[in-house]
Simulated scan of single mutants.
Amino acid sequence: MTQQQFQREKNYRVSIAIAKVMISRKLITAQEYSKIDSMLVTRYRPVFGGL
Protein backbone atom coordinates (compact mmCIF):
# COMPACT_ATOMS: atom_id res chain seq x y z
CA MET A 1 0.00 0.00 0.00
CA THR A 2 1.41 3.37 -0.97
CA GLN A 3 1.40 6.40 1.30
CA GLN A 4 -1.34 7.96 -0.85
CA GLN A 5 -3.51 4.84 -0.62
CA PHE A 6 -2.97 4.78 3.14
CA GLN A 7 -4.05 8.41 3.46
CA ARG A 8 -7.19 7.78 1.37
CA GLU A 9 -8.05 4.73 3.49
CA LYS A 10 -7.47 6.65 6.72
CA ASN A 11 -9.58 9.60 5.58
CA TYR A 12 -12.39 7.27 4.52
CA ARG A 13 -12.36 5.39 7.82
CA VAL A 14 -12.36 8.55 9.93
CA SER A 15 -15.22 9.99 7.91
CA ILE A 16 -17.29 6.81 8.07
CA ALA A 17 -16.68 6.57 11.82
CA ILE A 18 -18.23 10.02 12.21
CA ALA A 19 -21.21 8.94 10.11
CA LYS A 20 -21.62 5.83 12.31
CA VAL A 21 -21.75 8.01 15.41
CA MET A 22 -24.34 10.19 13.72
CA ILE A 23 -26.54 7.22 12.86
CA SER A 24 -26.20 5.78 16.37
CA ARG A 25 -27.36 9.10 17.81
CA LYS A 26 -30.22 9.16 15.30
CA LEU A 27 -28.95 12.36 13.70
CA ILE A 28 -29.17 10.74 10.27
CA THR A 29 -31.24 7.89 8.84
CA ALA A 30 -29.95 4.59 7.46
CA GLN A 31 -30.74 5.87 3.98
CA GLU A 32 -28.68 9.01 4.59
CA TYR A 33 -25.84 6.89 5.99
CA SER A 34 -25.87 4.76 2.85
CA LYS A 35 -25.72 7.86 0.66
CA ILE A 36 -22.85 9.28 2.74
CA ASP A 37 -20.96 5.99 2.46
CA SER A 38 -21.36 5.99 -1.33
CA MET A 39 -20.16 9.58 -1.53
CA LEU A 40 -17.13 8.83 0.65
CA VAL A 41 -16.18 5.78 -1.42
CA THR A 42 -16.34 7.92 -4.55
CA ARG A 43 -14.35 10.72 -2.95
CA TYR A 44 -11.61 8.73 -1.21
CA ARG A 45 -11.48 5.51 -3.29
CA PRO A 46 -10.35 3.46 -0.27
CA VAL A 47 -8.40 0.26 -0.84
CA PHE A 48 -10.35 -1.78 1.73
CA GLY A 49 -13.07 0.49 3.08
CA GLY A 50 -15.38 0.28 0.10
CA LEU A 51 -15.55 -3.50 0.09
Results as ranks from 00 to 15, higher is better:
2 T>C: 09
2 T>W: 07
2 T>G: 14
2 T>S: 14
2 T>H: 06
3 Q>E: 10
3 Q>A: 11
3 Q>K: 12
3 Q>G: 00
4 Q>H: 08
4 Q>C: 01
4 Q>V: 13
4 Q>D: 10
4 Q>L: 12
5 Q>K: 12
6 F>A: 11
6 F>G: 00
6 F>R: 10
6 F>V: 07
8 R>F: 05
8 R>Y: 01
8 R>K: 13
8 R>I: 00
9 E>W: 04
9 E>G: 02
10 K>Y: 11
10 K>W: 07
10 K>H: 05
10 K>C: 04
11 N>P: 00
12 Y>H: 04
13 R>E: 09
13 R>N: 13
13 R>L: 12
14 V>D: 10
14 V>K: 10
14 V>E: 13
14 V>T: 10
15 S>N: 09
15 S>F: 00
16 I>P: 01
16 I>L: 13
16 I>G: 08
16 I>Q: 04
16 I>D: 05
17 A>V: 01
17 A>Q: 11
17 A>T: 05
18 I>M: 09
18 I>T: 13
18 I>S: 11
18 I>V: 12
18 I>W: 03
19 A>M: 10
20 K>T: 08
20 K>S: 12
20 K>E: 15
20 K>I: 04
21 V>P: 00
21 V>S: 14
22 M>K: 15
22 M>E: 12
23 I>T: 11
23 I>N: 07
23 I>F: 06
23 I>L: 15
23 I>C: 07
23 I>R: 15
24 S>Y: 03
24 S>T: 07
24 S>I: 02
24 S>E: 14
24 S>R: 15
25 R>W: 01
25 R>T: 08
26 K>A: 09
27 L>T: 01
27 L>C: 01
27 L>P: 00
27 L>Y: 04
27 L>V: 03
27 L>H: 05
28 I>E: 06
30 A>D: 14
31 Q>C: 02
32 E>D: 12
32 E>F: 02
33 Y>R: 12
33 Y>K: 13
33 Y>M: 14
34 S>E: 14
34 S>I: 02
34 S>G: 15
34 S>D: 14
35 K>S: 09
36 I>G: 02
36 I>V: 15
38 S>Q: 15
38 S>E: 14
39 M>T: 09
39 M>D: 13
39 M>A: 13
40 L>P: 03
40 L>N: 06
41 V>A: 14
43 R>C: 03
43 R>L: 14
43 R>K: 15
44 Y>D: 03
44 Y>E: 06
44 Y>R: 05
44 Y>P: 00
45 R>Y: 03
45 R>I: 01
45 R>D: 11
45 R>W: 01
47 V>L: 12
47 V>I: 13
48 F>C: 03
48 F>M: 13
48 F>Y: 12
48 F>R: 11
49 G>P: 00
49 G>N: 04
49 G>M: 04
50 G>D: 08
50 G>R: 07
50 G>Y: 04
50 G>K: 11
51 L>P: 02
51 L>C: 02
51 L>G: 13
